[in-house]
Design a protein around this nucleic acid. Sequence first.
DNA 1: TTGTACGCGTTATCAC
DNA 2: GTGATAACGCGTACAA
Lengths: 339, 339
Amino acid sequence: MTRRSTSVTIRDVARNAGVSVATVSRYINRNAPVSDAVAARLDAVMGDLKYAPHAAARSLAMRRTQTIGLLLLNMHRDFFAPLISGVEAIVSQKGYNLLVATSRPSMRKNVQPPIGAHNTDGLLVFADSLDDEQIYRLYQKKFPVVLIHRTAPKNAPVPSVTVENKAATRKSIDHLIEVHGRRRILFMRGPAHQEDSYWREVGYLASLEDHGIPFEDTLMLSGEFESEIAYANLKKFIETGATPFDAVFTGDDDAAIGVLEALKDTGKRVPEDVAVIGFDDLRLTSFLNPPLTTVRAPTDEVGRTAAAQLFRIIDKQVPESTILLPTEIILRRSCGCQS
Amino acid sequence: MTRRSTSVTIRDVARNAGVSVATVSRYINRNAPVSDAVAARLDAVMGDLKYAPHAAARSLAMRRTQTIGLLLLNMHRDFFAPLISGVEAIVSQKGYNLLVATSRPSMRKNVQPPIGAHNTDGLLVFADSLDDEQIYRLYQKKFPVVLIHRTAPKNAPVPSVTVENKAATRKSIDHLIEVHGRRRILFMRGPAHQEDSYWREVGYLASLEDHGIPFEDTLMLSGEFESEIAYANLKKFIETGATPFDAVFTGDDDAAIGVLEALKDTGKRVPEDVAVIGFDDLRLTSFLNPPLTTVRAPTDEVGRTAAAQLFRIIDKQVPESTILLPTEIILRRSCGCQS
DNA sequence: TTGTACGCGTTATCAC
DNA sequence: GTGATAACGCGTACAA
């Protein structure tokens, strides 16, 4: 024996059970029947030796990894907890492993993302964690990919799962105008090139137009989906003798939190002086002061749905090309309701 | 050619560059010098072919997976976002991959956890996601393990990273008693067998004793680190004509949120009627109504530290046996401060 | 500096 | 039902 490894292999099991490795493999994978006697012996031996198949060896032989990858921009925002959780639920239920990684679209070419065809059987790609060219490359190789919170590039029509942004935002703005009589509504946009951000902006503009309110570009600030940035930018805006405004729609709840703070620190009352509406319905926003009116996005379900779609591809079934999960306005006090 | 695979292998690179696979391998791993001419050609060819080493094959040959595993109980609580984020930061910086999975200590024996020696080079084990016997088994095999938010079993002295629970809790109770004059302090405990939960309870009892306040078991409720459970249990407690109380210390911020709601729904004012203190300092707790006094736990740093310790083991260095990260009280309004 | 050949642990294809 | 054995893609003595 020239074995270097210390771990117990299928060969050890075979020897101890007095059968060939082929038989052990068959029994493990339930590929072909084995005699009851052998089955019993194998159960005993495997339990005894605490044998666990070596994943890499199996991957190499079967040419699949039994793991799927989730590519994120970062994971510190609360938004990602339900997303990862939803993905993990489906992945583990399918008996797969989950590899998570962060990645930003690479400036330099030839920088391989940390996960891909070499270590997963499929990829869940969040927003702009991969650029169009990288997505195209995966598409070319027919590698299973599902996009999350973004749609497919034209030259790489892979499935995607997103939430309804435009209509919900539009209705939110409608609500501010029609129910609460606001007309000078500040919009805190999210990151450029982010689709969610884009469609929310479109919804905002559409509502303004519906109500004959001219768009003023001074009422468009950058929030970047980050509370600190939203806080800083809004505060500066107010302190530098700003255009008056009576409401703020923020790209997401994180920014809304910054907005709430900035308003408090500059002595503006919410919702009396300024109404505020966010987007996402993070778990804690109903407990904010005042409770935040926001658009509920089913983030956990987005994760589940995207993972399910990915497995449809992997299992050679036909996935939906685009899934748009519904959102709904949650009226609370920050917009002026339930006061 | 009897190749079945469609993907580009090291052999393709070798052929296209007119060298042997050994040379390619050496160049990739920077193991041995390669002539400049060859290096240049390899760069070109690899870029051209978009070659990426097959992880499984590499793992099999090197007998290491280049990935580490993070075992959690679940991932839907906001608490886990910074934890995962911290771990991921170190792991990716080390050039490793991160496998995340959930697991509960198995009732049935012989149920292998989804990640372990067969698919990772080391494991980060959160709280009770593995039972003592499973930890012992890994220890026996000398498999790299670091425990998070729990300490090691006596028979398996593996490193652990936790936060300081007892002193911080004790000081919090001291604060309620000494500064705000509360004496009937309800304690909402966390999950049984959870160490954080246990030590916070010990801190509570210690402070009571210090101040000569007898412990009343009717003032001990179950919160389970879940806002819904804390809400339901406290509400029921109040509505069934409860023992009077003038403060609540909750095992964690999630429970604190439930407590705040239950108090609001039963018409009790915070902090006037009841003072509330939590534990963790989740990102949004400063924006609650009222802002939550809580103990700040450096969760992101716990993740980073644990991952760093794991890599010390993997790199054959000596890790710290136990790391206790400091916590600190953050005084806000829910305890009566800054009113 | 470079090439040859074997082993890593498993599955799958043949035979029997 | 069962066993022998050639892949799977890569790293690494050993040789040159």
